[in-house]
Every structure is written in structure tokens, then in C-alpha cells.
Design a protein around this nucleic acid. Structure first.
Lengths: 353, 353
DNA sequence: GTGAAAGCGCTAACAC
DNA sequence: GTGTTAGCGCTTTCAC
């Protein structure tokens, strides 16, 4: 109802304030070196005209975008049943906001999408990328490397070759798993089973390793691979009970899986924790606190993981500054081998074990 | 490791192909009118150089951004416990992707963020916006209106004045609620309680209205306001049982709330559905299928809602085309009153009622 | 059909 | 300190 045409430009503000475009630009960008009486006049003109800088024009010259891509490469529906994803986004969003950066969300479903994402990243729309949920055979890392976009990975990437300069943030999956299994063993359990996640993801593989660290020579039939979902947890639990009716504890790779296991145990008339003790991983509150009984689980601070990833990326970006790509390793942290930050986990005891 | 400097420009491609920049631009943008031998040469040069257009430069002249903002204004943690949010994003993402548009996610936490979002939208970074989770007193609609950005709202907005040209997509909350309550009544229940959502959201208010449509002269103590969370559902259920120990059915405003109610009922030794029948709303599978017993609930197709919103917005954008703002109502659907699309709901019967 | 040239709105040297 | 100027990479008239 108000403006008839396009938004005011720097030029307009300059005219109104009776100064040059450069001066307005300086004031708007907070660069000091504009004397007070003038600066105030400019600020006023900006206010009166409702001036907002045109980001496209600015990006064109600065080569900065104040935007970061978040790539979630999860073809399975899993992401959408698990609050995991939302929590990470929240952490990331908080950090980016504090840094005046925008969050561009790239969700991929299936292989075709990868080239789209690759093209987008290569297109120089964003200053950096945060990438999640990689599977071992994922083509994305290659595309990203070629795109030359500074990137921080969520979770330890699964490939080892060509990993120089890769930066990632992960939870101590192995250590956390070890702690959970030790806790079960400490309860006097000897037939501890494990329902793993999809083993082409490092988080799942690492948790399995943690389990094995403690149960070194356990019956291999005590391990069932699953997929981090509730339904998958049910399936795996049935399998395990059929194979090993004498199991007395289960360590599930995440809380959703654990909740599936709980349901099957109840179905079969087994009491938790009396007959079978159960532990999960994540401490996803809406899941872990609401199972019957509430779940003993390994807490990881998902939101903090998100924040940390963003912080790491932004720090790297600030260091290298804008301007043309430097070529070579474009990880924000320099070319000295893969550098990962591993966040600690803590065991949360509830009624299930 | 490959490129030493910045990415190739149109100029570079033109040089390589031995044509002018204009011609390359035409080929790249699929505008016909370039003869075949030439066009092919250009395509080859593009390929060889790995040319990707610079979006900032393009936007500067076209005033299109091929990006849409998704604003989720939910200060409460609720969004992060409920898969709702993820599902909508997925629907939106699919549709935007198909339209070669990017998704810029704007999460707000608390009031301070609103001005940030307003500024961003006003900044002309995006072609349009999809806005969710508005509460009655939300300042965002005003900001958006002033920003003049084409917008589609998710859920019926709560204000009525100045609502011309507003476009929204909603579920048939009232009708769905009515159906659920009728179902409970059809089961022979006479003391049907309702746990509502926060009544400053139209979805909650509409579901309450639907309940009242059927239970016109029910005891007002059979209604408790809650907040769409599991914990809130527990609290409200306790309240209701204390007030009306003789209730024989509960219609909860969403599945999460219903799951809280179920837990309290179990706690109190009441059998579901024998003593108390329970119905929810949403049909959020990870919740509704995993409660004990599984939940009878009203299904709404969240993902489709997201897709529809995106489609509506993009259609509007295509119609009005790029270029400077037209002024006045900037809703994509013309200035003829608020136009809403209301999606149907369906009752899903499971064991709880 | 194709090329030349004029900006889109902004920042960053460089003068003054 | 402040203004002048030259582009950033692209699209788009307008000639040819």
C-alpha cells in the first residue's frame, strides 16, 4: 500500500543526506571514519527511506554471502521421525543468527539430488557448508571437494583417503557405547545384546565398536543390525529373542530403536529391567522420558553439536576472509590432516537399566 | 587442488567459444534464438570450463532470487519434539527443488528475532515467504506486510482485520475434531473431555470449536487448555481426572498431548479404551502408532500441506513475474479477501477408541 | 540470429 | 574524512 516502485538505493539515501554514496556505504557498514554530524544525517536518511542494502549487489563485489548451506543427505524417512535433526538445526540456526548469517537448507532425497546440491555449492551462493548424515559410499564429499566450499561435517566421515583438511564434529560414540555396556555388565548382566544402526554410518559402526570393546568375546548372534528407527528396533529385538532367548540386556544404538525393543519385550511378557535391562543412545527426551519404563541412555548434546559446527565454520571463514578461492584444501582449518572435535557423552540412568 | 583463482565467468566462456557474452547468456538461460552449431560450441565451453552462473550478478539484474524463506516462529521448544515441523519442511523442500528454488530457513526464538526476520524479508533476499506457527498477537504479519513480500501462511492466521489478499493453507481442524468427538460419542461415551492446545493459535481454537459443535452443552469442566506437548498432556489429564473422575473419553488436541494423557490414565489404573476412550489429532506416525494402545486419531497430511503452500507461492510468483514490487497487496493471489485452502482430514481408527 | 553497450546497486581503491 | 570512480558478472535492449 505504501511504496509504488522498487526499494530505495544507496544513491537515494546519499541524495537525501546530501553526501556521497561512499559515505552512506561506510555508515551502513559500520566502518568508522565518518564524522558524527554527517553520520547522524545519514542514519536519519536511512531510517526515513527505510533503506535496506541489496544483498545481491553487495555479494557481487564482496564475494561474501552471509549465508551457509546445511546439507542433510538422508534419503530415508528416518530424519523425519527423529527430533535429532530439528535440534541440530536449532543449534546451527542460533549460531548463524548471532553471526548474521543465513541458513540455506538443502534436503536431498535420492541420488539425483546430489548433483543438484553439488551445483548449488559450486555456484558460490554460500560462504560455507555444514554437511550431515553421510553414508560410506556417499558421492557428496567428492562433489563438495570439487566445489571448493569450506565445509564442516557432522559426524565423522567414513572415508579415510583424501581426508586432509577435513573438519568434523562428532560425539564420542564409541566411548558412550562402552559406558552404556559397562553399566549393563555392572548390573550383573552377562548376555548383553546390541541392536546396531546401519553400519555404513560411522556413528553406528563406532557404537558397535564400543559394544565390542566391552563384550570382546560375546556370542556374535547377540548383535543385530538395524536402522535407527522404532520399527527397525522391533524387528531386531524379535530376531534377537528368537536367536538368543536367554539374553538379559540390550544396548540399542539409539533411543528410537530402544523404544521399539521395549515394545517387543513387553509383548513377549518380559519385564524391564528385571528380565532384560535396556539402554539406548541419544537421550532424545521426547523418546527417552516417555518410554515405559523411562530409558537409561547415553546423552549427547545435539544442539551443542550444531552450534559448534557452525562456530567452527564461521571461524574458518573469518580467518580466510572473503575474496577469491585460495585453491587447494578449502577446509576452514588448514591442510593438516582431518581434524575432528569429539564431544563427550554422559550416561543418564533411568528405570530401564 | 584444481582451480587457483575464482570461478570462470560468462566472459571466459564467451572467449573460449568465440562468441559474445550475450550469446552465452542466451544459451545458458535456454532462450532459443541461437543457431545450433553455435549453441553447441557454447555448451561445450561451459562444460569444459565448469562454468556456473553467479547468482548474485544474475539477481542484481533480474531481481529474482530463486529462493524462498521459510519462517518458523515458534519460541517454544515444541517444534523440536514434534515431527510436524520436519514433515512440512520436507514437503516444501520437494516442491521448491522441483522449481529450482532454494529454501532459506528462518527460525525465530523470542521477540528480538522478529525484527531480524522482518529486516531480512524486507531486504529482498527472497522471492517469497512461507510462514508458520503464528500466534494471535504475533507482530510478524505486520512486518511481512510492510516488507511487501509475497507470502503464504501455514495455518489460518488469527487476525481478521486487514486480511485482504492473505493466502493460507490449513487443515480442516474443526471438521476433523468434530469427527473425532462424534466417533467417541458413537462409542456410547457421554462424558467426553477435551485437552486443547494453546488457544491463541487458530488450530487449537478450531479444534475446540469442533469439540463444542458436538458437545454443545457439555460440562465446561471437561475442557482443559494445554500446550500441544506430552508433558502438557499429562498435566491436563491429571487436572481433568481430578475435576471429573467420571469422564469416559478424551479428545486431545494432538497426538503428543494424547500420549501424555495415556500415560496418566495408565498411572491411575484406568484402562484404555474400556474405561476411557482416547482420540488424538495429527496422526503423527512415530507417536500415534507407538503409544500403548495405538492411538485413534485424526490424520492430516502435513507433507502435502507443505507442498501445497510452496506450490501456491510459486504459482503466484510466476504470475506476477520478477521486477519491482507492484505495491499494495502483495499476496500471490490478488486482492480479493483472504483466500484459504483447507485440506480435509480423515479419522484413523486404532485401539485407543 | 548475433554482438555491442548500458546498467542492476553496491564496495573499495584512490584522489582530494 | 569525504567524494570520485571503476568495476563485480550478469541480462537485456538495441543495432546490425
Amino acid at each position: 500500500m505504501s511504496d509504488t516502485a522498487s526499494r530505495p538505493t544507496l544513491e537515494a539515501v546519499a541524495a537525501r543526506a546530501g553526501v556521497s554514496r561512499a559515505t552512506v556505504s561506510r555508515v551502513v557498514n559500520g566502518s568508522d571514519g565518518v564524522r558524527e554530524p554527517l553520520a547522524e544525517r545519514v542514519r536519519q536518511a536511512v531510517e526515513e527511506l527505510g533503506y535496506v542494502p541489496n544483498q545481491a549487489a553487495r555479494s557481487l563485489v564482496t564475494r561474501r554471502h552471509d549465508a551457509v548451506a546445511v546439507v542433510i543427505a538422508e534419503p530415508e524417512a528416518r530424519v523425519f521421525a527423529d527430533p535429532f535433526f530439528a535440534l541440530q538445526l536449532r543449534g546451527i540456526s542460533q549460531e548463524l543468527t548471532a553471526h548474521d548469517s543465513q541458513l540455506v537448507l538443502l534436503l536431498t532425497e535420492g541420488r539425483g539430488d546430489h548433483t543438484r546440491v553439488g551445483r548449488y555449492l559450486a555456484g558460490g551462493h554460500v560462504d560455507g557448508a555444514l554437511v550431515f548424515s553421510l553414508h560410506l559410499d556417499d558421492p557428496l564429499p567428492g562433489l563438495i571437494r570439487r566445489a571448493g566450499v569450506p565445509t564442516v561435517f557432522g559426524g565423522r566421515p567414513g572415508w579415510s583417503d583424501d581426508a586432509d583438511g577435513i573438519v568434523y564434529v562428532d560425539s564420542d560414540n564409541r566411548g558412550g557405547a562402552r559406558e552404556a555396556v559397562r553399566h549393563l555388565v555392572g548390573l550383573g548382566r552377562t548376555r548383553v545384546a546390541h541392536i546396531s544402526g546401519p553400519l555404513d554410518q560411522t556413528s553406528a559402526a563406532d557404537r558397535l565398536d564400543g559394544y565390542r570393546d566391552v563384550m570382546a568375546d560375546a556370542d556374535p548372534r547377540l548383535v543385530a543390525e538395524s536402522d535407527f528407527t522404532h520399527a527397525g528396533g522391533e524387528r531386531a529385538m524379535r530376531e534377537l529373542l528368537d536367536r538368543c532367548p536367554d539374553l538379559d540386556a540390550v544396548f540399542a544404538a539409539n533411543d528410537l530403536t530402544a523404544s521399539g525393543a521395549l515394545r517387543v519385550l513387553r509383548e513377549r511378557g518380559l519385564r524391564v529391567p528385571e528380565d532384560v535391562a535396556v539402554a539406548g543412545f541419544d537421550d532424545m527426551l521426547p523418546v527417552a522420558e516417555q518410554t515405559e519404563p523411562p530409558l537409561t541412555t547415553v546423552r549427547q548434546d545435539i544442539e551443542e553439536m550444531g552450534r559448534l559446527m557452525a562456530r567452527l565454520l564461521l571461524r574458518g571463514l573469518d580467518r580466510r576472509g572473503p575474496g577469491p578461492r585460495t585453491g587447494g584444501q578449502d577446509a576452514p582449518d588448514g591442510p593438516d590432516g582431518p581434524s575432528g572435535i569429539v564431544l563427550p557423552t554422559t550416561l543418564v540412568r533411568r528405570a530401564s537399566a
